[in-house]
């Protein structure tokens, strides 16, 4: 039980990071971006690419399995992911925005997801890989509760990033502009806010967080070209139960989904774990469509 809770919190931390970017695109750009999770895969593989191209050692830091090389590679991966997000926006989404009904954007993102996922397969092959072969021993921190140092790091980093994003949205001019656009793009423009600038920043923040979440997933699980595709449902579920556009809600939603998933294994066969986000999401939509943690904007 405590072990399942700890595992759930760890998975939840990664879901939370991914769901922030997703809820921002859904709230501000106003479409469900099916390609968002592929940004995570892309970021994770770009970091792997940097490590491979420069044949960097893993150089573990203390008890962790990774060190400065992966951290440096992640920084480059973040830039490459932001670059891809902006490029896709310029080539595809920007051309469709406002032209037709916004579901066309959803549709396009669906196609983009397939393209990016298979581009990764094409470059890196379809097999599962790891950043490092270093094995890590779990540390027993309480009876029946073991965690890996990597997991502790991932959890702490996620919490720090989530707080940073929250402060950014609440305290900065750009954050305020984003919240305004999320409520009403037209009124924001009338207020002198440049929509194209806000859109650009949504991709930058969403892309950066996706890359970090992707690398963290790669560190804690493994790298496979489909992992983003499999994360998509938990991320959507987290964003929806958190109330679309609500960053704090998405984070809580991410943890909630992570915990429900790992606790569910205690009751149902493990094979169905991945269906849990869908079931939770459907229940929430039936009972409380604005999300569990509402007080949000950007909904309907």
């Amino acid at each position: 039980m405590p072990q399942a809770l700890a595992d759930g919190l760890l998975t939840g931390a990664i879901y939370a990071l991914g769901a922030i970017g997703l809820t921002l695109t859904m709230g501000i750009l106003r479409f469900a971006n099916f390609a968002h999770a592929e940004m995570m895969t892309w970021g994770a593989y770009m970091a792997l690419g940097v490590l491979t191209v420069f044949s960097l050692p893993s150089a573990p830091l203390g008890p962790l399995t990774f060190g400065w090389p992966l951290i440096g590679a992640t920084v480059i991966a973040i830039l490459l992911t932001i670059g891809l997000a902006l490029l896709i926006d310029k080539l595809i989404f920007a051309r469709l925005r406002g032209r037709v009904n916004h579901l066309t954007l959803v549709f396009a993102s669906f196609g983009v997801a397939l393209l990016v996922r298979n581009l990764i397969s094409l470059i890196f092959g379809g097999e599962a890989t790891y950043y490092t072969n270093t094995l890590q021993m779990a540390i027993r921190i309480a009876p029946g509760l073991r965690v890996m140092p990597d997991q502790v790091f991932i959890f702490c980093l996620s919490i720090v990033l989530v707080i940073a994003i929250h402060l950014f949205l609440q305290k900065t001019r750009l954050g305020l502009a984003m919240r305004a656009v999320s409520e009403s793009p037209t009124l924001a423009e009338i207020n002198g806010i440049s929509l194209s600038r806000v859109v650009k920043w949504v991709w930058i923040i969403g892309g950066a967080l996706a890359a970090i979440a992707g690398v963290l997933y790669g560190v804690s699980v493994q790298l496979r070209p489909e992992f983003g595709f499999q994360l998509l449902l938990p991320l959507f579920a987290a964003a929806i139960i958190g109330g679309v556009g609500n960053v704090v809600g998405a984070v809580l939603g991410g943890f909630f989904i992570g915990i429900v998933e790992s606790m569910s294994v205690l009751v149902i066969p493990a094979g169905y774990k991945l269906a849990m986000p869908f079931i939770v999401m459907l229940l929430v939509l039936y009972v409380r469509p604005t999300g569990l943690f509402s007080g949000t904007s950007g909904g309907k």
Binding site: I92, L96, A108, G111, L115, N118, S121, L122
Partner: peptide, 18 residues
């Protein structure tokens, strides 16, 4: 890997047509 190209073909058809 060629299979990935085949899937990219489908993705491109969707995006380019849109």
């Amino acid at each position: 890997r060629a299979g990935a190209l085949q899937a990219m073909l489908i993705g491109s058809v969707i995006v380019l047509t849109l």
